[in-house]
Design a protein around this nucleic acid. Sequence first.
RNA 1: GGAGAGGUGGCAGAGUGGUCGAAUGCGACGGUCUCGAAAACCGUUAAGCUCGCAAGGGCUUCGAGAGUUCGAAUCUCUCCCUCUCCGCCA
Length: 426
Amino acid sequence: MLDIRFIRENPEAVRAGIAAKRSEDVVDQILDLDKERRTIIGEVEQLKSRRNTVSEEIAGLKRTKQPADDKIAEMKGVSDDIAALDQRLREKELALNLLMDTVPNMPHSSVPIGNDAKDNVEVKRWSPNGDDSLFEKRAGLDHLALAEKHGLFDFKRGAKIAAAGFPVYMGRGAQLERAFINFMLDLHTRSHGYTEVLPPFFVNATSLRGTGQFPKFADQVYHMPADELYAIPTAEVPVTNLYAEEMIPVEALPLLHCAFSACFRREAGSYGKDTRGFLRVHEFNKVELVKFTLPENSYEEHEKLTADAERVLELLEIPYRRIICCTGDQSFGNSKQYDLEVWSPVEGAWLEASSCSNFEDFQARRANIRFKRDAKSRPEFVHTLNGSGLATSRLMVAFLETYQEPDGTIRIPEVLHPYLPFTSIA
RNA sequence: GGAGAGGUGGCAGAGUGGUCGAAUGCGACGGUCUCGAAAACCGUUAAGCUCGCAAGGGCUUCGAGAGUUCGAAUCUCUCCCUCUCCGCCA
């Protein structure tokens, strides 16, 4: 959510940001409602002020046992007027908030203007020893064939016991998945300074609104109406909301958390697109990185967070690239977004394995996450950042294809040996 | 699932329908004292909205919502949450 005062004072800048993000321009409606709202506030508060004054006079008269009947009679109508104005005010505020929720975060000045993914800009490419030949399409079994050959996953039985898009990991496939997760958690907690969190996988609607999934993406989240709970689409939701409505001690900033969770996404409307195997699933596993920072440090922390995610791929020696998402492709709530894409040599395609975003104070304002610079200063909103570090599903695809030998054996890189009871899948 | 207790300021914890945004304690901040610190003493100590160039003013907030009343932290109703005990259970 943006600051209403910022919109009031910079309507043209907001209009430009909305246009760059390909969102609907509601600035005029917001300004109108804001004006009406403030007019009503002026009227109703004048009445309330009068009521308070007279109430005190009545109290004074009662205390000295003097009659106050005429003043009481005078106030009877005033309270009704106040109630009517309060009602109108609530209606205006409700309408205003609904619109405010649809305004995206403003893109940072360093983000390229663009329409869609085609306008994203590659800013970095990495492969072991800088070997560019690794970015070529190669012959070999794709991840589904490899999984079949070695009995790593069971998509059919996943569909039987749940639904299509809910993978089952079997045997060495399950162990490999667990090794990825443990490896990433250990890296981020031991080498990158993050504190581990294992959050609930269900949250309430307030939390989803806090991080920006609601109201815009409500149809993408699994809902359990009997208990009014929602399955998390990412650990970003529970972890960011840990400090909702709180004042974080300034000395605790920056606050760094990493969290493993399963992630649940309905992917409504995307049927038929990239549906094979792990390319698009309803449930997947992810280690998420979340930061709470001082406003002036968030862009520096964004670079570090992205580098922390990249480190996973570098240690696993998986070729990847970093792209900066253009204004039309970045997400609703963030101001700057890097995507990390792993190279899938058999698909011959880049697969998104991570998305690292700076939300500035957009989520912090919605969730009311604040800090004070010192005891005397006013509270300010922190900046929140998050990024996958990483999601395992696309990583698994690239990993299996990258590490297959000519005979279909999958070699396990040394960095994972401490996490597995085998060094190859043959 | 059943029974009970409770939700008040950063924390702890009082509160009679009317000088209650709220006693008191702790903490924090500023000051006196000190070479410095501790102790002691004095003072300050919420947030949001709104009007105003500012100084400053106004309004709201005692878990949430509704009600009674001229007036609600205080009375009534509904809901939410926390804790304790019993039952069941991974």
